[in-house]
Design a protein around this nucleic acid. Structure first.
Length: 105
DNA sequence: AGTTTGACTGGAG
DNA sequence: CCTCCAGCCAAAC
């Protein structure tokens, strides 16, 4: 099997779980933090395989444009309930809500 | 082993 | 703001 794929999926879940309420992260960010900057699409696939029932707040993950997933209509409502504001065109204001991981001094 | 697909990205029209 | 296009890379067929 491929330990890399399993590890990647595991790390992605770990990172997404660290995203605080009221904040969002992009697929590219998660992929980069996981150690694979070029696998943004894989992040989406993994989150999809995880499912919303998981302890991973996958609804806080949006694309680099601050837009919600095209095939997941409920996501927008979830973000709104966490206090995240959307612009008139329906995208998250990344300028204010993008999550920045805690830096180790 | 070749082709298609995708919860992406950034730029162009 | 919207849609389309090309680049990207691993998983699924």
């Amino acid at each position: 099997m491929k330990p890399e794929s399993v590890e990647f999926a595991r790390v992605v879940a770990e990172i997404v779980r660290e995203v605080p309420e009221g904040k969002v992260a992009t697929y590219g960010d998660i992929a980069t933090l996981a150690g694979f900057p070029t696998h943004a699409r894989l992040v989406g696939k993994i989150l999809g395989s995880i499912g919303t029932a998981s302890s991973v707040p996958c609804h806080r993950i949006v694309n680099a444009q601050g837009r919600t997933a095209p095939h997941w209509l409920e996501q927008r409502a979830l973000l709104l309930s966490e206090g995240i504001e959307f612009t008139s065109s329906g995208h998250v204001d990344l300028r204010r809500y993008r999550w920045v991981p805690p830096l180790p001094e």
